[in-house]
C-alpha cells in the first residue's frame, strides 16, 4: 500500500503523545501527519490541510472529540478514529454510533495503531474493481468469489453457496481461528445448533477442492475443539 500519499490529522491535548503517534505513523510510511491539541486548532489544521483521515482524542481542553467529529463530518466523509483513555462501553458505543470508523483505547501498542489505521484506509479507499476482483490465493489454487469457482491451472471447480460462504468467513479472518459457532452462524444464521456435523461435511468438500492432500490439509486447518482457520501464507 502506498501509505505516503495519505494525509493524517492527529488531535490530542498531550504534546508528547501526539508526537509519539506522529512518529509511529511516519514509521509506517505516512509522511504527512499533522497534529493539533484542541478542537479549535484541529479545525484550523483540517481546513488548511484537508487530511484523508483524522485520529481524535475525546477529551480536549476546549470541547470534546465528538463535537469535532460532527464538525468534520459536516464537510467531508473521511475516515475518523477515536483515540481515548475512556474504555467504558458507553463511550465506545457512542463514538462508533456517531459513525466513527474505529475506537482505540489508550494505552495501545504502536503496532496495533498502525494495523488499525491501515485497515481503515484499506476499507475506505480500496477501489471498487479491486473489491470485485478480490481473489483468495491458496498456493497454486485461486478462488474467484465473484464466480464461485476454484481455478487450478486451466481447471475450474465450482463451489457451492455454502462452501463459498464458509471460505469467505474464514478468509475475512485469515490466519485467525474462526469458531464452529461463528462459521455456522455465518452460513445458517442464529439458529445454527445441530449443524456441526453438516459443517464438517462442507469443510471436507472444501478441502477436496482446495488441498493437494485433503487428509493432511495445508490451508484449511483444524483448531481442535474450537473451529478452523486458513493458513496465512504458504506453509
Amino acid at each position: 500500500m502506498e501509505n505516503y500519499k495519505y494525509k493524517i490529522l492527529v488531535v490530542d491535548d498531550n504534546r508528547e503523545l501526539v508526537n509519539l503517534i506522529a512518529a509511529i505513523l511516519k514509521e509506517d510510511g505516512y509522511q504527512e501527519v499533522f497534529t493539533a491539541r484542541s478542537v479549535k486548532e484541529g479545525l484550523k489544521v483540517f481546513h488548511k490541510e484537508r487530511p484523508d483521515m483524522a485520529i481524535l482524542d475525546i477529551m480536549l481542553p476546549d470541547g470534546d472529540g465528538f463535537d469535532l467529529f460532527r464538525r468534520i463530518r459536516e464537510e467531508t466523509e473521511i475516515p475518523i478514529l477515536f483515540l481515548s483513555a475512556k474504555d467504558e462501553d458507553e463511550d465506545r458505543l457512542f463514538g462508533l454510533g456517531l459513525g466513527a470508523d474505529d475506537y482505540i483505547t489508550k494505552p495501545f501498542l504502536p503496532k496495533e495503531l498502525q494495523l488499525r489505521v491501515r485497515a481503515v484506509f484499506k476499507r475506505t479507499y480500496r477501489r471498487e474493481e479491486e473489491r470485485q476482483e478480490a481473489v483468495i490465493c491458496l498456493g497454486e489454487r485461486k478462488v474467484l468469489p465473484e464466480r464461485a469457482v476454484v481455478r487450478f491451472g486451466e481447471k475450474e471447480t465450482p463451489l457451492t453457496a455454502k462452501e463459498l460462504a464458509l471460505l469467505m468467513k474464514l478468509n475475512q479472518n485469515r490466519g485467525r481461528i474462526v469458531t464452529f459457532d461463528a462459521l455456522c452462524n455465518a452460513v445458517w444464521g442464529d439458529f445454527y445448533y445441530g449443524y456441526e456435523n453438516t459443517l464438517m461435511v462442507h469443510i471436507r468438500h472444501l478441502r477436496e477442492k482446495l488441498e493437494d492432500d485433503p487428509s493432511h490439509p495445508q490451508w484449511i486447518l483444524t483448531a481442535r475443539g474450537l473451529g478452523y482457520r486458513i493458513a496465512k501464507a504458504q506453509p
Binding site: L17, L20, I21, K86, E88, P107, L109
Partner: peptide, 21 residues
C-alpha cells in the same frame, strides 16, 4: 477510580509506545 484510571492511560501510552520503539 474511573478518573485515576483515565489519567493513568495517557502517560502509560507513552511508556508503552516508547518502550516498544
Amino acid at each position: 477510580i474511573a478518573g485515576v484510571s483515565h489519567d493513568i492511560r495517557t502517560p502509560l501510552s507513552l511508556i508503552v509506545g516508547y518502550g516498544d520503539k
